[in-house]
Structure formats: structure tokens, C-alpha cells
Write a protein that binds this DNA or RNA. Structure first.
Lengths: 341, 341
DNA sequence: CTGTTAGCGCATTCAG
DNA sequence: CTGAATGCGCTAACAG
């Protein structure tokens, strides 16, 4: 593989000149520039970024870690993040941690060796004191952005206020008159995202002076099947819930299915609210009321923030909290039988 | 940031010894190893992979290019691919080309400069002679794997036989007695994936000696909205189709919605078959018959193949063609009014 | 404008 | 088993 030396030789110039036409073309005479360009073409030369990066101490790489991407929110965030970063000449290393702190740590180490210039943590992480400390340590030197995960003072955060989103949803159901509300949530003891949503739900119940014991807080696998199975169980209760709020749209679709099978028309016999505003939420019938999370904006803003910090380092961490919106569609109605307030 | 030199100094050994405890620990005496490890700990030393890679000419990086990841198939493939690669010590650069040949070329160049050791092209690409030539050129030196895109002799391919999948679906509908079949496909003049599906569809029609003119071949945006709008138009035709086959599950969900709004019960008044076997296909009601694409297996196999080629280079390109399966669920039935064969 | 020179941080000969 | 020395490919002073 051709090097800068080979080019210099065949173009009859010094390596410095070759380097110049690559980096500051204007600083080279027309004549020599042409010769160099020609040699590059002829030898099919591809600059070795490793050498350049070693010398300049700039890699133009950032790392992004996430537990999983097989959901409807994450890919959109990544896509918009990558688009912006790529357009600005940065490239991205992607690792899937599978929510395993061990793996996460390993991948962070790897990226550190690769000298990434910044980190993005996307999606809810497991609680892991050890890793958190390490991340905080990194954040002293590099920009670290956490998306949908808020905890540490030294890292930047971008997220929808999930507690607020859950609060809006729960309040909406309560305001409609629902009292037996089921909340199908993920494991709030392990994942921050479910922790916050639970907070918001409880806040709404508290504020509206509703009776929490009438509600069912169920921990489910945060996917279609988890929602389906939990809903089936709930619908067979003597006092079945009149409304279901779920921590994700996928879960809610499972609830839809269970409702259909149990002959519970939505929204007449059952109100449903999902979470995330993914395309699927408007594909179902009836269109689902859901809490929007602005996936694309989130990714873009993360990239912009990253670039901004990267440009003028050092800089203090910044936070951006999106206010989620409750998207009202056709899956909610007052409870059928005028349950007393 | 501490370097190998600093470690050598504080451990009172040579840089060679430090390098050895990092790479071949057994080749160093217990005593010195301990001293080095201690110094590493104390100075918080992180090896510089760039220097190492420059020296050894091995980056342990592969690049993956794809047009977009906001669909249900791609993320699963990527996830399983990454998991396997990461587990084997490789890392991955990800770029989203947006199906833009210009961008694609740019990103390939970038990755080449970064000295990735292999390329994966995932998902249908635009036809682009220029880039294809370039990719073939690269494939002479590096492993190049194309997923869901089959064309060039010098690159390895992993894919579902999409033509076969479409063939199975169309044949199923024809065998049920359907003759007015609508095929909602993406743009087959621009994307290989839709080209192959069309091939398969036409083959089935031909083999069953059905009348092609009774069918509607419609080019739609390959998403929910595209399916919905096209279906609405079709359902208002005097001779509306009795069955719809779509190039993707998302499109099919749009068809579901349109059918619901037009009072056409599935499968009694309308049969529907989707493509890709994504979770959504079994979330809808009734559960959708669809062509499975084995997303997870695809990603894993791609990684295994990549690793295999990477290990014993050079090696000839290999192809793996998955036989897609028609997953029979509840969205198909014979046409209602006994349409004459 | 141009060429010479000196490293960036590390792995790897080659002697010892 | 260990250390001194060399160079991977490139950029960035520094003189000219």
C-alpha cells in the first residue's frame, strides 16, 4: 500500500509537500500540486488516518453505547445522531452492551484505547455504581452525553422528561374518571427509564388524591408479549382495570391484542395509553394515545451538543430536557359505567 | 496522558518490557510484571491503540454501511452482527448512507483511511455503477459482505432469497384462488430488493398461468403511509383486489388500516401477506401471514463469515442464501365469492 | 513556497 | 528474560 513517501518520490517533491497538498492545498504551487495529485491518482494512494491521528492527537471518532437497538425509539435517535456527526466529518463506533455492566465497561475501555473524543450513552442503563464512577471520571476529560438517562452532574444529558410524560398520561386517565388503572412498566429497580416513569405515575396519583391501591403496578417484559400476557391476566380479574398505561408502545400493542381477544372494545371498555410516539402507535386501530419522545430531535440535539463541546473544549456539561407531549388519539374515553370519583 | 515510556520509567524497566507485559505477559518475569502492572495502575495508563495499530497494521475494525435503520429488519441484523464481532474483539464503524451514492462513496473513503479490515453493506442499495466498481475493487483486497443485496462476483453475499419469498407468497394467494392480487412494492427500478421481489411475484403469476392484467403492481413508499394510501385507492376501484401482497410488513399494516376503514374484514373480504416477519406482523389483528427473513441469523452469519475470512486471508468470496419461509397466520383466506379460476 | 528534521506511541528485531 | 535501537506513516516546526 502506497505511502506519502512513495508519492513524494514519484512526484519529485518532499513528503512535506505531499502532506501540504492533502491538508493545506493553497500553500502549494499549482505546478507541484498537480504533480502530487497525479501521483496520488496513479499510485491509488489512500492516506493512513492512523498515522495522522497519532501525530495530531485527533481521531474524529466518538463512541456510542447502548443496551439494545431492537426497539422503535433507538434506531431513530442513532440515525439522526449519525447523520449530523458524519456530515461534520466525525465517525462513530457503536457497541451494544446488552445492559451488561461488564460488557459496558469492556467496550468503554476499548473505545478509550481507540481515543474516541466523546461518548454517548443512549437509552436506559443498568444501575452500576462502578461503571458510573468510571464514566464520571471520563467526563472530566471528554464530553459525555447521556440520552434518556439522567444521573451524574459531570455528564451532559439529553432526554425527554419521562417522569413528566408518565405524569401527563396518568393525569389524563384520572381526569377522564378512571380509577382502576393498570401501569405496565419495565423493571424500575434495574433501569432508570422505568424508575422515572414510575415516579411520574405515582406523582399523578398522589396529586389527584386517587387511591393507589385501586391501581395495578405490574412489572412486565417491555415488549409486545409482556404486554399481552400481563393484560390477559388483568382482564380476568373480577375488578379488571378500566384503563392501562404502558411504559412503551410495544407493550400497549400487546394490550390491544389482549383486549380484542377478551371482547373489550377500545376505548369504550378500555382506555390505553402508550409511550414513545413510535409509528406503530398510529398504525393500530384505533390510533393510540401515546406520550411522544421526539426521537429524531433527540439524536440531532445530541450530535449538535457533542460537536459544540468538541469544538471549544473544555466546557461545562449541559443539559437539555425535552418536555414530552401527550398525543391524544382515539384510545381513551371515560370509563363506561360512571365509576364514582 | 501517560505513555509506555512513563510506565517504563516509573517501573524501572525498558519500554520493551512494558510492551511485553501488555501483549505477552508470560514472557516477563513475575517480579517485573508486578512492577509494571503497578505503574500502569498508578499512572492510570491507557494504551494508545492508534500507535499499536500503526505499528502492527491491524485495526480490528470493520465498517458497516446502510441506507437507513428506521425499519424493523435492519436493527436486528446490526445488533446480532455487532454482538458477535464485539465478542471477538472487533469493533465497528457505522455510517448511514441515506441511499445516496455520493455519501456512500465518501464514507467508504473515510473508512478506508481508517484502515477498516472489512466492509459490510447492509440492505438494498441504490444501483450505482460507479460505487459498485469501487466496491469490487476493494473486494480484491478486503472482505466485503453484502447483506440483502446480490450482484457482484467478488463480494460475499448473505441474504434471504427475496425472489423466492415473494414467489411463495404470490403462489399461496393464487393457490387460494385469488386472481385480482395487488402487489404493493417499493421502487424496483432503484432498489435491488424490490427488483427481486417483483421477479418472484411475476414468476409465480407466470407459473400458475394467472392473468397478470388482473393484478395491480403498485409502487409505493415502503412504509405505513404508503401502504395505507395505495390501499385506499385500490379499495375504491370498481373491481377491487381480493388480496394484497406487500414488500414489507409496515406497508401491510397500512393496508390493514385501510381495510378496516373500508369495512373489509381480513381475511374474509381481503387477504394480506406482508414481508419480513417482524414483530409487528404478529401484533396486528388478525395476525399477519408474512415472509420471514431471519434477521438475527442473518447478522450472526454475516459476522461469522467476516471473522472467518478475516482470519485466513486471502479467501474466495462465499455466498449464503437463506431460504425464506412463508409464515402462515390468519390474514389469508380464499376469495369470498368464489371467483372463477 | 519548499525541504529537512524530529517525533507521535508503540511493537519488534537483535544482542546480550 | 531483558534493553537498546529502529521504524510504522504522517504532521509540524524550522530554516532556507
Amino acid at each position: 500500500m502506497a505511502t506519502i513517501k512513495d508519492i513524494a518520490k514519484t512526484a519529485h517533491v518532499s513528503t512535506a509537500t505531499v502532506s501540504r497538498v492533502l491538508n493545506t492545498p493553497d500553500a502549494v504551487s499549482e505546478e507541484r500540486r498537480r504533480r502530487v495529485l497525479q501521483a496520488i491518482e496513479r499510485l491509488n494512494y489512500t492516506p493512513n488516518a492512523l498515522a495522522r491521528e497519532l501525530k495530531t492527537n485527533r481521531t474524529g471518532a466518538v463512541g456510542i453505547l447502548l443496551p439494545d437497538i431492537t426497539n422503535t425509539f433507538t434506531p431513530t435517535v442513532i440515525e439522526s445522531f449519525l447523520q449530523v456527526m458524519n456530515r461534520h466529518g466525525y465517525n462513530t463506533l457503536l457497541c451494544i452492551t446488552n445492559a451488561d455492566p461488564q460488557l459496558e465497561l469492556e467496550y468503554i475501555r476499548m473505545m478509550n484505547k481507540k481515543r474516541v473524543e466523546g461518548f454517548v450513552f443512549l437509552g436506559s442503563r443498568c444501575f452500576s455504581e462502578k461503571n458510573d464512577d468510571f464514566i464520571e471520571h471520563i467526563a472530566q476529560k471528554l464530553p459525555v452525553i447521556a440520552i434518556d438517562y439522567l444521573d451524574k452532574p459531570s455528564v451532559s444529558h439529553i432526554m425527554a422528561d419521562e417522569a413528566q410524560g408518565a405524569y401527563l398520561a396518568a393525569r389524563h386517565l384520572l381526569a377522564l374518571g378512571h380509577r382502576r388503572i393498570a401501569f405496565l412498566n419495565g423493571d424500575h429497580t434495574r433501569y432508570t427509564t422505568y424508575y422515572y416513569k414510575r415516579e411520574g405515575f405515582l406523582r399523578a396519583v398522589h396529586e389527584m388524591s386517587a387511591d393507589l391501591s385501586a391501581c395495578s403496578l405490574v412489572t412486565v417484559q417491555p415488549n409486545y408479549l409482556g404486554g399481552y400476557e400481563a393484560a390477559c391476566r388483568l382482564f380476568e380479574l373480577p375488578e379488571r382495570p378500566t384503563a392501562v398505561f404502558t411504559a412503551g408502545d410495544q407493550i400497549a400493542v400487546g394490550v390491544y391484542r389482549a383486549a380484542q381477544e377478551h371482547g373489550l372494545p377500545i376505548p369504550e371498555a378500555l382506555s390505553v395509553i402508550g409511550f414513545s410516539g413510535s409509528p406503530i402507535s398510529m398504525s393500530v386501530y384505533p390510533p393510540m394515545t401515546t406520550v411522544s419522545q421526539f426521537a429524531q430531535e433527540t439524536g440531532e440535539q445530541a450530535a449538535r451538543l457533542m460537536l459544540e463541546i468538541l469544538q471549544k473544549t473544555p466546557s461545562a456539561p449541559q443539559n437539555m430536557i425535552f418536555a414530552p407531549e401527550l398525543i391524544l388519539r382515539q384510545s381513551c374515553a371515560p370509563p363506561q359505567s360512571g365509576i364514582p370519583l
